[in-house]
Design a protein around this nucleic acid. Structure first.
Lengths: 158, 158
DNA sequence: ATCAGTGCAAATGGTTTGCAGCATC
DNA sequence: GATGCTGCAAACCATTTGCACTGAT
């Protein structure tokens, strides 16, 4: 079933909205994580595709295609976990599909993904603010963050 | 990771917003599905808990506790699929948890679920309309439906 | 030298599928 | 009587875990 998912990090307070360029490796290092060859490759790919949405599998394939080294999917998951733990990354679940991971960055934190053509349309920050404010006003929830992924169908595919 | 998920049914055009009382069995029958003992029990439970959110496992346990018959989880999944196919039901995925299923009904189609205490807070229909209109205005997506589940943390748990 | 990170294999857990028997229409 | 529905077992697939080894600090 095509759905619409929004994700709020459990580590809401920690979430960091970066403006490009991000320096993921430096942040990992500054937080006591070790810099390894795998992490260099993963962070490099993420930084070069700052607006992309990858599944763990896609990431693994992309990285292993570009490099000589063969990085295991487990390692990818563990590095993604580390980045998420630091609030640099988030992931969302799409029914019948693997989770997609994406960076937290100021410019493009709301995405509408077309379930037919995979096109990604971004929502303006202004609109996100409006939505958040509606949600806050109407509930006693205050951990509404503005990193959303909506899945629907774009006009062209209808 | 605490997240916020929104789900749009793939069968958007088919989605039926019912006012209580719903007659799930009748709709199944009218659409060529057979009425069986399992389906009676499942539909009965759903109709008696019209605002609840169940995982497939919870549903199975609840039904088997109340009846003499032992209904297999597979049967639950298949009946849920049938109801979803008819636009009577939807499901959403919460990270690290099984999917939750809930009925489509007019009154309470937006839910904020607290990840700590499982409290469910409802959002007014008015607000849902505002959010939908913001999303539509800012994109070329037009299958934004108003059956949402947001997962966050309520004020009391913060 | 320590201890975090890695790869591999195996486990996990939710969901789906195949199939023979049963129940509904 | 035909065929949809069921239960059981097995398959599936994304993700997680255990563990011995390797590499970063």
């Amino acid at each position: 079933m095509p759905l619409l998912y929004i994700r709020i990090s459990r580590l809401y307070d920690k979430i960091i909205m970066y403006n490009y360029p991000m320096n993921l490796l430096k942040i990992l290092k500054d937080n006591g994580y070790r810099i390894t060859e795998s992490r260099k490759l993963i962070c490099d790919l993420l930084e070069k595709n700052i607006h992309f949405h990858f599944s763990a599998k896609e990431l693994t394939l992309l990285i292993n295609k570009k490099s000589e080294i063969n990085i295991d999917q487990t390692t990818i998951y563990r590095t993604l976990d580390a980045l998420e733990e630091l609030g640099l990354l988030q992931h969302s679940h799409i029914p019948h599909k693997p989770a997609i991971y994406y960076l937290n960055n100021t410019d493009q934190n709301v995405h509408l993904i077309c379930e037919s053509c995979d096109k990604i349309v971004d929502i303006s920050e202004q609109s996100v603010k409006s939505i958040n404010s509606i949600l806050k006003q109407n509930s006693n929830f205050n951990t509404i963050n503005n990193n959303f992924v909506y899945i629907g169908k774009c006009k062209e595919c209808l």
